[in-house]
Design a protein around this nucleic acid. Structure first.
Length: 201
DNA sequence: CGTTCGATGCACT
DNA sequence: GTGCATCGAACGT
């Protein structure tokens, strides 16, 4: 079952918690890829210095201010696409960054896409559990790009599903890879999961 | 195990 | 011109 818009129109920390174990699906022309979410981070409002809305509305962060249940995709470090799910009411800028998946479907396609990265030329293919480890890696493996920015997650090629995965054990920790706002423990991971990026708990 | 650092594009100031 | 919500290699312990 595809998660409805009301799933996303809630406090961001609740959405973040509940996204763990849900399944991200991309139906591309090349084939279907899917993975269970095992790591997320919440970015909440203009008072959160690490949130892209910290400096107020801009052209780039406009999707954060838009309706919930849509994708906010942006390019980071000039290299990596990052995918968020927009949360809360329209006008309240907040989102959940999808940081890692456990690959479920389309692993050969994921591996082909990962191998296509310029910095992986001539390198051995990555193992299964590494295919979607890290926000940049998962976007590359899933084929998620800036073209998917603002796409609804309730229909179309990019969707998030409840497939009844049973209550993974969730651990909260500091968000990683940021230089401000590290005091908040707004990173949720599945305990000791090998597809989680960075430190595991 | 850990830390450091270069690649790379673009929004923002 | 500056600085990233990263990745992976190259080192040191």
């Amino acid at each position: 079952m595809i998660l409805p818009v009301d799933f996303y129109r809630r406090p961001t920390l609740e959405v973040a918690r509940d996204l763990i174990g849900k399944v991200l699906v991309y139906r591309a022309k090349q084939g279907v890829t899917a993975g269970a979410i095992v790591e997320v981070e919440a970015y909440i409002g203009e008072d959160d210095p690490a949130c892209h809305a910290a400096a107020g509305p801009t052209e780039r962060n406009a999707p954060l201010y838009g309706p919930p249940g849509r994708a906010y995709v942006y390019l980071n470090y000039g290299l990596h696409d990052m995918m968020n799910a927009v949360t809360e009411e329209e006008g309240h800028p907040a989102a959940v960054l999808i940081r890692a998946l456990e690959p479920l479907e389309g692993l050969p396609l994921m591996r082909r896409r990962r191998s296509r990265a310029p910095w992986r030329k001539g390198k051995p293919p990555v193992s299964d559990h590494e295919l979607c480890r890290g926000p940049g890696n998962l976007c590359r493996a899933m084929g998620i790009t800036l073209a998917d920015n603002t796409r609804p997650l309730t229909r179309g090629p990019l969707t998030i599903h409840d497939r009844g995965i049973t209550h993974p054990e969730i651990v909260w920790s500091q968000r990683i890879g940021i230089r401000v706002g590290t005091e908040h423990h707004w990173r949720a991971t599945v305990r000791d999961h090998r597809s989680v990026s960075g430190k595991r708990y």
